[in-house]
Amino acid sequence: MELDTLKIRVFHWAGWISVIIGLFALAILNITLLSGYDTPFSDRLSLFIFLSLLFGAIACLQRMSRTLGLWGIFLAFFLILFMGVMFLLGWFIIPFP
């Protein structure tokens, strides 16, 4: 019984951590886009995406924390989509090396 509660808590925390890391990465991206300057964390965006995905995947293993896990994974995938779109379309719209 105690072990089950502990397990649920661990998965819940993994879900929350995934969401919070995803939101943190998204906030950094917003600051970078709006200010035009890189923050000290900007170059670690891929690490945050990885951590958000990892914790999100862990949270998805448990039914009770699956929503949080999917939320974190959604944020990570959004960031991956954003980086992909910026990189690919950057080739189209900026014709300079």
Binding site: V19, I20, L23, L26, A27, L29, N30, L33, L34, W71, L75, F78, L81, F82, V85, M86, L89, G90, F92, I93, I94
Partner: peptide, 28 residues
């Protein structure tokens, strides 16, 4: 957190739409 999520998605989404516009609409 869901409110913050929606708020933080706005600017990157607009950026992507801007890039899409300048790539496929009136090109840069």
């Amino acid at each position: 957190l869901s409110t913050i999520t929606v708020a933080l998605l706005i600017v990157p989404t607009i950026y992507m739409l801007t890039f899409i516009y300048y790539a496929f609409g009136t090109k840069s």
